[in-house]
């Protein structure tokens, strides 16, 4: 998968980073991913049973917070617009972008699976940044930022690899776990596409419904007048309380 992935990253990056305004969005997406990762790492600090790893998780979390700030800074310097601006300010974007879900990664995966995920995700990030730098796609300041971040990412890969190897030496199926994470990431990307595509198609059909369904009723609809009105209420009986939900 390595060579194929690198080729794919190169092609996609070459296209994406040359579209005007797109680098801001991509950097905003990086900032979001780093913020999400910080939350996952802090959850790991909270929940880990292996007290020796706590300090590493904590350092990792602080690194991710710093990276998020660095990426956000680059977005602003490049002239943030619209969604890119919102992405670096608004927590809701973390949910919208699928960066965070109802539970943290650590809660979902447990310690060993989490570590193997960290290894896979950080190694992927290193590869992605290396491709961007090798192809000289970002502007010089962003490239300098990526160089700074890469140092931390190498450290994250290194400690996660040590832990994964330790678990593998203890007989855990870590190779399989890492392969599963890689495929899961592909699956999640597909689900994101599916969801976006669904929103697009749903929007089309509902737009059609608006024209053919809502339009004919236009003459019956009216907005409420201003000022105090008499309230329409169902009262506080138990029967009323259980309705309209």
């Amino acid at each position: 998968m390595g060579l194929f992935r690198r080729a794919w990253l190169t092609v996609v990056s070459e296209v994406a980073w040359r579209i005007p305004g797109r680098p801001q969005r991509l950097l905003a997406a990086f900032a979001l991913a780093e913020r999400g990762s910080m939350l996952d790492m802090l959850s790991a600090v909270e929940l880990t049973e292996r007290r020796g790893l706590r300090k590493l998780y904590f350092r990792h979390a602080l690194d991710e917070a710093r990276h998020a700030a660095l990426f956000a800074g680059r977005v602003r310097s490049l002239g943030a617009i619209g969604r890119a601006e919102a992405a670096i300010e608004d927590s809701g974007q973390l949910v919208e972008a699928g960066v965070v879900a109802g539970t943290t990664l650590f809660e979902r995966l447990g310690e060993e699976e989490f570590l193997s995920f960290v290894y896979v995700a950080e190694a992927d990030a290193v590869e992605q940044f290396e491709v961007l730098l090798a192809r000289r796609l970002p502007d010089p300041e962003t490239a300098a930022t990526l160089h700074r971040i890469l140092k931390d990412e190498h450290f994250h890969v290194s400690y996660a690899r040590t832990e994964v190897e330790r678990a593998a030496a203890a007989g855990r199926p870590m190779r399989r776990s890492m392969a599963l994470h890689r495929w899961r990431r592909v699956g999640q990307a597909w689900l994101r596409f599916s969801s976006d595509f669904g929103a697009l198609m749903g929007g089309f059909w509902l737009g059609l419904a608006y024209v053919v369904g809502v339009g004919p009723f236009r003459l019956l609809g009216r907005l409420e007048p201003g000022g105090w009105q008499r309230p329409e209420r169902g009262g506080s009986s138990l029967a009323a309380a259980r309705t309209e939900g």
Binding site: G198, G202, G213
Partner: peptide, 23 residues
Amino acid sequence: LVLFLLVMGAGLLFVASFPYVAP
């Protein structure tokens, strides 16, 4: 109108319940 929307909603929910093949 709401009945019409509910039928559409049922369709949307049905498709969304198969996220891997929804597209």
